[in-house]
Amino acid sequence: MTAYEKIDVVSKSATPDDAAMLRAAVQLTKDITTARAAIYWPDCFLSALVGYAALVGAILSPNLLLTVGLGVIAALALYRALLFIHELTHIHRTALPGFRFAWNLFVGIPMLTPSFMYENVHTLHHARTRYGTPEDPEYLPLALMKPWSLPVFVLVAALAPVALLIRSAVLVPLGAIIPPLRTVVWERFSALSINPSFRRRPPEGAFGRMVFWQELGASLWAVALLASTQILGWRPLLTALGIFSVTAVLNQLRTLVAHLWENDGEAMTVTGQYLDSVNVPPPGWIAPLWAPVGLRYHALHHLLPSLPYHSLSEAHRRIAAHLGTESTYHGANYGGMIPLLGKIARSTMVRR
């Protein structure tokens, strides 16, 4: 590793906080911090409705081109609905009454990704002393790893739907009668994390009870899906798994460009975390497709984790206008997925 490369790696963890930026982010957004049910409910469940309708159409279509077209629509719509799991981890438990239950019933359990798989996991990623460290379940120093790690990171996501099906239909029921297996499944295969060393702690109290019912629902649904092949044949299930694989890969690509992944394991300041994260603001029009539900403003989200997704665009406009293009805030803004993929890929090719 050259001296320049070493400085480049360390600078992220050594970045001092920009007090003016942090203060402006809070003060300029005080009036837009409430999650609005009139936006959350129709956005999420109309997306799910479109997704499921397109999925049924793809299954029933006799035309390959139409099947592919409907499959793309289903993948994008269900992707948007699924990513409301991110909002569930941040909104206050008393906000949006009934939304968590409805989301799990109509999105989380049908897609075998109930909300417990992200709740009490994603918040660790936002912990001041955990972000970018080995204790962060959602961080790998991908920019500092070998070039082959990037395609492997993306392509392994294609197997996620099959893995989730096996988990809920086979491993969870077996774990109910084999306690050591139950422990392994919970610790290692019950969180939407990318850090292979992350081990999840046992659920307790009200959260534990919620996990039980969500696990039961997901397992019953997974068994029903497998059983349906004896009546409907394999096409419906395989088509759904294929569409869900597209969704999973798209989400993995979004995850890959959500951060620069340049931290070397040391704890970071809030400003350091911000600069290691990514905003893809307008005028780009395609970002809402691959980073929906406000995730095109991922760096801003790390400044204001509890800000509802529908307020992020306005928050970005206010903060950017107030601080200007020469500010630290501007340093996390990028032009799109392709430039970001190129930047991270080039980082992996630097000899260290």
Rank of each mutant, 00 (worst) to 15 (best):
D8Q: 13
L323T: 02
R36G: 13
G108Y: 01
N263Q: 05
I344N: 05
D276E: 04
V68W: 04
A95Y: 09
A258K: 03
P151K: 03
T183G: 12
R130P: 09
V170E: 10
P288E: 04
F212W: 13
W261C: 12
R167H: 14
P281L: 04
Q214N: 07
W148E: 14
I338H: 01
L192G: 15
R182D: 14
Q214Y: 00
T348P: 11
P236G: 02
D31V: 01
Q252S: 11
P97L: 06
P42A: 08
Y131S: 13
F207L: 00
A74D: 13
S219R: 00
V50H: 02
I319H: 02
G342K: 05
V293W: 02
D264Y: 01
M111R: 06
T328M: 03
E326M: 01
L142M: 15
T94P: 07
V278Y: 00
Q214E: 14
R23Y: 14
P180T: 02
R201W: 02
S313G: 11
Y309I: 05
T239Y: 03
N195V: 04
A81S: 13
P196I: 00
D276V: 00
G208C: 00
T123L: 11
A127K: 08
T325S: 12
A321I: 04
I39S: 10
A248R: 07
S228V: 05
T94W: 01
P147T: 09
W41I: 15
S347T: 08
V270T: 14
G324K: 01
H316I: 09
P282I: 01
P305T: 03
